[in-house]
């Protein structure tokens, strides 16, 4: 029953976008915005809607880092790994995040609150190192300020 529901919701979201040229990316974005990831169950329906094979839809989801095939934590912390941030000591920020959360990149903390993702440039390179928590950008982050940020995360329903 639950699975049926997900498939139906996905079709309701995807159908109005289906006539757009090159509709697959906008549809996947819309699905991820709704479900916070792209559940496997929605793939056949989307494929049928766009007259694609399931493999093609799966191939697109897996190609793009932005699309998550698994549920993420309540929040996602993106740490910039690019050169500008490295020039300002982002390696220490990465290490602190991994140690404090007890996870590596692409993993979610045990309490389900944070998923850690690498990102290659947030376009904030004059005030490196940068991190982004969900859609909120932070400048000149240090290992200490990052740990403080994580400790002060507001409680959120996952």
């Amino acid at each position: 029953m639950a699975a049926l529901n997900i498939e139906q919701i996905a079709l309701d979201i995807a159908s109005p976008l289906a006539e757009e040229p090159g509709a697959l990316l906008p549809i996947l974005h819309a699905l991820q915005e709704h479900f916070a990831y792209i559940p496997t169950e929605v793939v056949p329906g989307v494929a049928q809607l766009l007259n694609l094979s399931r493999a093609e839809v799966h191939g697109v989801i897996s190609f793009y880092d932005w699309f998550q095939a698994e549920p993420s934590g309540a929040s996602t912390l993106y740490i910039c790994r690019a050169e500008s941030c490295q020039a300002m000591g982002s390696a220490a920020v990465e290490a602190a995040a991994k140690q404090h959360l007890g996870i590596d990149y692409h993993q979610t903390s045990d309490d389900g609150r944070i998923t850690l993702q690498p990102i290659y440039c947030l376009g904030n390179c004059a005030c490196s190192p940068a991190v982004m928590l969900d859609e909120k950008l932070y400048s000149r982050v240090s290992a200490e300020s990052l740990v403080a940020m994580l400790d002060n995360l507001p409680e959120r329903e996952s």
Binding site: A82, E83, S84, C85, Y120, C121, G123, N124, C125, A126
Partner: peptide, 11 residues
Amino acid sequence: DEGDSGTYVDR
């Protein structure tokens, strides 16, 4: 799709 590190003028 301004992905180069060190660039932010498009933004």
